[in-house]
Amino acid sequence: MESKDNIALSVRDLKTFFYTNNRCNKAVNGVSFDVEKGKTLCIVGESGCGKSVTAATIMQLLPTLSRIEEGEIKFRKNDEIINIEKLEKNGKEMREIRGSDIAMIFQDPMTALNPVYTVGFQISENLKYHTNLNRKQIREKCISLLSDMGIPLPEKRVDEYPHSYSGGMRQRAMIAMAMACNPKILIADEPTTALDVTIQAQIFELMDKLKKENDTAIILITHDMGVVAELADNVAVMYMGNIVEAGTADDVLRRPTHPYTKALLESVPVLGRGKNQDINPIKGSTPDPYNRPIGCQFAPRCNWQTESCDIMPEISQINETHQVRCHKYEQFFEKYNEKRNSKIT
């Protein structure tokens, strides 16, 4: 898999731990996934399962109390493979990748832009550090980026401060900033949670367009299953620091094979399925991250739990793309599909 040319980023057995008050929080505990060029990988999962930490690890933007414990992050830059985890955190090589090859947009555009600099200035910083353009060219590029993002009157807007932008416009400006140097990978951590629904759709449309035009690989972190169904090529379901199920969007959404994936899918309303759909919140709540269960992390909340679940299940390959981390997945899959079949007949 790793040697394939179309893989932009390959993460293997990544572990990132937090150390607070002499206790260890295994926030990301052995995560592996690949991101293909021009494809969108959605990472989903309940709050606190380690999605943001995974993203921050890839960018080496972790807070001081945490560190990469183990694993590999291989980034393909043209024909070269760079091991990101080996680079110094704020060293020159890492900084060259940040903002130019891998860019990130954040959850809340209200707080992610610096209030004392104009939007144009903040976009231009990216270009200043990663391109050889002169000041005039940088300014023109900023304006054209803003206009690409659908911001009206970009020549005027470029000199305005973030506070005179609306939330949706700020997120567009953030995307303009992230896309300034045509990154190979764009990481978006819940980019629309802070925005209202109509603007959400516009932002996703924009991201999808950029992905198609520039062959950018996107890692999209979200809670919204509707968004996943709409945008994802591949999906990874995370629970307590592990990926419990991964595959193409079809694999995961239509043939969920892990009890957690199924529970997660049933816990959210799906747009267009009407009012009478069953919504079952996942029973119980996520365990204390400092006091995690041994073995399968989901076992205490799982209807299928047996003694074998005291040992962490290995990853099983269902087909070429579809993977699951569950001891009982075969029975589960059969039963679930039986039920579906019987429903249909």
Binding site: M59, L61, N90, M94, R95, E96, I97, R98, G99, S100, A103, M104, F106, D108, T111, A112, L113, N114, P115, E125, N126, Y129, H130, M174, M177
Partner: peptide
């Protein structure tokens, strides 16, 4: 958060 944003642009 804008500090993280600034750092994410690869600035020293």
């Amino acid at each position: 958060e804008f500090i993280t944003t600034a750092r994410s642009k690869g600035m020293p």
